[in-house]
Design a protein around this nucleic acid. Sequence first.
DNA 1: CCGCCATGCGTACAGTGTGCGCATCGAAGG
DNA 2: CCTTCGATGCGCACACTGTACGCATGGCGG
Lengths: 243, 243
Amino acid sequence: MSRTKDKNPIPSVWTREQRRTDQPALSRDAIVREAIAMLDAEGIEALSMRKLGARLNAGATSLYRHVATKDELMELAVDEVAAEIHVPRAGGPDWRAAVTEAAGSFRTTALRHPWLTLVLGQAGLAYLGPNYMNFSERLAALFTAAGFPEPSRAIDAVFSYVIGMSTTEAAWLTTVARSGESESEFVARLLPAAQRASAGYDHLAAAGPETSAQASDPAKLRDDKFAYGLEVVLDGLALRLPK
Amino acid sequence: MSRTKDKNPIPSVWTREQRRTDQPALSRDAIVREAIAMLDAEGIEALSMRKLGARLNAGATSLYRHVATKDELMELAVDEVAAEIHVPRAGGPDWRAAVTEAAGSFRTTALRHPWLTLVLGQAGLAYLGPNYMNFSERLAALFTAAGFPEPSRAIDAVFSYVIGMSTTEAAWLTTVARSGESESEFVARLLPAAQRASAGYDHLAAAGPETSAQASDPAKLRDDKFAYGLEVVLDGLALRLPK
DNA sequence: CCGCCATGCGTACAGTGTGCGCATCGAAGG
DNA sequence: CCTTCGATGCGCACACTGTACGCATGGCGG
């Protein structure tokens, strides 16, 4: 498991373990990849430099040869997963379909890596990696080709919505995952508490979609909710397209 | 400063310091209030139980008599600032103005407490305090009175946008604050780097609003951007109002 | 063959959240 | 008035964090 961790009683050149060069060498890319794997599997608060080092058969401080700081590592991880977001090429016949595709791709990426939105909220988009730049560029191309006179405002409108919804969903899914139950089970178990909590709040009780019937497929419900809001935003934007 | 911290060479009943009852006693409310003050002043990562205790002339672990865990303290802090969000009473003649008011109030609250969105992203809205419940109830009343057949979907659409934009803005303002400069200075200093970064990205360079002229009043630019996106969403929602 | 330099790592430091048990208080009951 | 008790504060300790520092090691260019 470890290279020199098993304390050798007689330190000597001859008994010393050989450096294992068959293992994939430590490299920035390998570190980032493994970090993402840990983040996806165990959540953002479970990632520590020591555990990450252990996973790579390395000491914690060895990582600092390839990465300046943990924050920098997180930025690299964010940019890495940003490559997974698919934005259709600009100039297609149906800009709404293209934007819907891009928005959906952002959402599924954010839900696949529920720590993404947390880091975005902390770091902002201050330092921009190449993949994120590409993502932005393709979006700008898409909205420009669609004919928006102020593409950046349109982009901000759509993706503020997308980020907001994805953040909320990711937080919810994280809570569900921590419960160890499936989403349906979790919802079913929380239903009585939720109804008790909204007793006395007339409009909340009436407006909430918390009926046991709909709790049977919560994922679809989330999909629909996201699609609905996205249509709302796109409708509003369509009104601003010069005709 | 401290009660018993100055080590007394001769421990005795007579030399022991008296408990100071003139100081406001430790209480859950006092703890939450002081925590919010620290969070606002020094940011989320500067808040530790030890520092918070010191501010209240108390030891770190004393706080645990009134608060189960740091996470619980953060939930209490969130619910406390939720009371600052103003949602107009339902039934007014102009639902758009009312929603705009509520959305703007959420935004200013989130920017006044830039840690709010971070905690929301982490905890989700799983455990709901009374102030947050009130906020939701008033929103439900507002949208129901406006005539939306599915008020919760409309609320989600609007506030996903609001949360997304506020999160991004809060992260930006935090970055600016850490620089020690004013927002205008910060923008001016970053301008050349930003332009260099977007060289080679045609549409980005063309779409970006990063002209030095507009950098003179970045706060107003943000206000306008928020208002623009909100109008987009409200326009989209208006199409769904039964006539 | 020598020397250099990038890489790995052991140690250490300052800090974190929080469990545990003791000291101390104000109030209640005899 | 004295005793007892429950609530409150706190010192200590533990396991854990990010990361600065300096040493050991190996492969590589001269």
